[in-house]
Structures are given as C-alpha cells and as structure tokens.
Simulated scan of single mutants.
Amino acid sequence: MRIFVIIFLFMILGVASCSTSKTVNNQSSQSDTQINGDTIRIANDSLEYEVIVFEPGFESWLQTQKPRGYYSKSYLEQRNQYNVIIYNSRVYSRPRLYPQEIDYQPHIDYGYEVNYMLYHYFLFFEQKYNQKLR
C-alpha cells in the first residue's frame, strides 16, 4: 500500500521530466480535480501532468486542512522543494517507507493545485507514518 502512496508523486515528476524544455507562461491554467473515495486525480492538459493519490484517508484528512488559497504558491513551492530533498535523502536508507525518489524540479511551474496537494501529502505522510521531514 505504501507504494501507492508515492505513485502520485511519480506521476507528477514523470510527466514533468518529459517536458522540461517546454516553457510555461505565468497565466493560471485550469485544473481538473476528481475525487472517488480515497483516490484523488488532478489533471491539467496544458502543463501535461496528472497526479493520482491512492492513500486511504488522505481525502478526508485533506478536508480538515487549511483551504486552497490560504498559503501562497511561493510558500508551497519552497516547502515542497525542501521536503522533496529530505524525502529523497531517505529513499536508500528506508526503501520500504520511501520506495522511490521524487523528481520535483524547482524551475518547472507545476501550478498552485499540484503544489497544494504535494505540500499536504507531505503533511499527511508525516502524521500517518510518524516521520518528520523538517
């Protein structure tokens, strides 16, 4: 089940790494968010990414958190960059809990929704698995 926890991160990074030479303008783009039980799907065709979260309890936990717009996009990007570094540093030492590296690239504009979900996934991960990424 822990493998599925991380799948959504790899979906972001896999697609994003395929289009690293693509330039992204600063205009906000539309995201399509769908929720089915404990599976959350976020898709944005203009940025060519798709995020899928398969973690039981994540969707209900997310509803108890601060709403979208509470944090600035730059704050979420900074936190995600830091958390990805810590997370990736643990991949080889704890492969059962951290099965694969996350390829989050700071020069790519993933948009607000992806950064919001990734930030909150890290918070959820810390709480559920009693891990500190800070």
Results as ranks from 00 to 15, higher is better:
58 F>I: 09
111 G>S: 09
118 L>I: 15
92 Y>F: 07
14 G>K: 01
35 I>E: 14
11 M>V: 00
32 D>Y: 10
48 E>R: 10
58 F>P: 07
21 S>F: 05
27 Q>K: 12
115 N>G: 02
79 R>M: 13
83 N>D: 14
123 L>M: 09
111 G>I: 09
26 N>G: 08
128 K>M: 12
99 P>D: 08
64 T>N: 12
88 N>I: 03
64 T>M: 12
1 M>H: 07
11 M>W: 05
8 F>K: 10
14 G>C: 03
23 T>E: 15
85 I>Y: 09
75 Y>P: 03
79 R>E: 14
48 E>G: 06
66 K>S: 09
119 Y>K: 04
40 I>T: 13
124 F>S: 04
103 D>N: 14
19 S>L: 01
82 Y>N: 13
80 N>Y: 02
131 Q>W: 00
100 Q>W: 07
121 Y>G: 09
118 L>R: 04
9 L>R: 06
87 Y>D: 08
108 I>G: 04
109 D>E: 12
28 S>E: 12
22 K>I: 05
112 Y>N: 08
71 Y>E: 08
92 Y>D: 13
115 N>F: 03
13 L>P: 00
101 E>N: 07
22 K>G: 00
57 G>L: 04
45 D>T: 13
132 K>L: 05
80 N>Q: 01
98 Y>T: 05
13 L>E: 10
19 S>K: 02
94 R>T: 14
60 S>M: 02
20 T>K: 14
116 Y>T: 07
